[in-house]
């Protein structure tokens, strides 16, 4: 990853060598974002469901717990990522034993991502009509069954839509984390493109980032459509009958 830091050539990277520089960096970015998003989903979904159900009208409303949790999440949401990253360095070091590299980037990215995603999940659950939960309870569902089948399952398209936005935000954060030595595309862009005015490298990183984000968005949108029965229909109808 950042092993090349000490041995930077003084002049621009020759064009044929750009792929060798950028491809591993892209791999690092994807790894960082991938690990982060796995943690974000694993923690954010239950946390979002918890916050939603602690609120008035939820399955187990609790004013104090809801307010406290909501505050913590809001603080996580309101700090700019660069500041959050710097502020929690002691915590990061405690967990990962280091404050550089991918492990060190994953910690602040996960925290920012979880705060973001918890709100997305909460919001998605809020948009599910409340009668679904009542139906489930009247059908003999336990609270866990209500959350799983009446709340989360119904909100899946909306949650996946939010996941797309969240993933893109994490790609952005990974670039910021790159500047403090986490490697990845962001690191390449800053060290070569920004500090050395290597336009070719800069341009390459930009193209790669734009393409990655576009791909994530496209995949997310397709997934949302596939997960929404009524949207699936509309697409089929729009395509029209294949043959008579």
């Amino acid at each position: 990853m950042s092993a090349a830091v000490g041995a930077l050539p003084a002049q621009n990277v020759p064009l044929p060598e750009i792929p060798a520089l950028v491809v591993p960096a892209l791999g690092e970015t994807l790894l960082m974002v991938g690990i982060t998003m796995a943690i974000v989903v694993l923690v954010g979904v239950p946390l979002g469901a918890l916050v939603f159900n602690l609120a008035p009208g939820g399955l187990f409303p609790h004013r104090v717990a809801h307010t406290a949790l909501s505050w913590v999440i809001s603080i996580g949401r309101s700090l700019p990522f660069l500041i959050l990253m710097a502020a929690i360095i002691p915590f990061t070091r405690l967990i990962t034993g280091t404050n550089i590299g991918i492990p060190a980037a994953v910690v602040p990215m996960s925290i920012a991502g979880i705060a973001f995603f918890t709100r997305i999940v909460e919001n998605s659950l809020r948009s599910v009509p409340g009668d679904r939960a009542r139906v489930a309870i009247a059908s003999g569902a336990s609270p866990v069954q209500v959350i799983r089948s009446a709340q989360l399952a119904e909100a899946v398209p909306s949650i996946v839509g939010g996941l797309t936005i969240n993933t893109i935000a994490m790609i952005e954060y990974s670039a910021i984390a790159g500047t403090i030595g986490a490697g990845g595309i962001g690191y390449v862009a800053v060290t070569y493109g920004y500090q050395r005015f290597d336009h070719a490298v800069m341009l390459t990183t930009i193209v790669i980032l734009v393409a990655t984000v576009a791909l994530v968005q496209l995949t997310g949108d397709r997934l949302v459509r596939r997960l929404t029965p009524s949207a699936r229909d509309r697409r089929a109808a729009a395509r029209g009958p294949v043959s008579a």
């Binding site: 009509p129 009668d131 679904r132 009542r134 139906v135 489930a136 009247a138 059908s139 003999g140 569902a141 336990s142 069954q145 089948s149 009446a150 399952a153 119904e154 899946v156 398209p157 997960l227 929404t228 029965p229 009524s230």
Partner: peptide, 28 residues
């Protein structure tokens, strides 16, 4: 489970087929 409820808004789960909706109480 001894009481069946029919809701005004039908309360069907939008991502489940008719059969999957009917199966819901059985799954629970």
């Amino acid at each position: 489970r001894r009481i069946g409820t029919i809701f005004q808004s039908d309360g069907l789960f939008s991502r489940r087929t008719a059969a999957q909706n009917v199966a819901l109480p059985l799954e629970f």
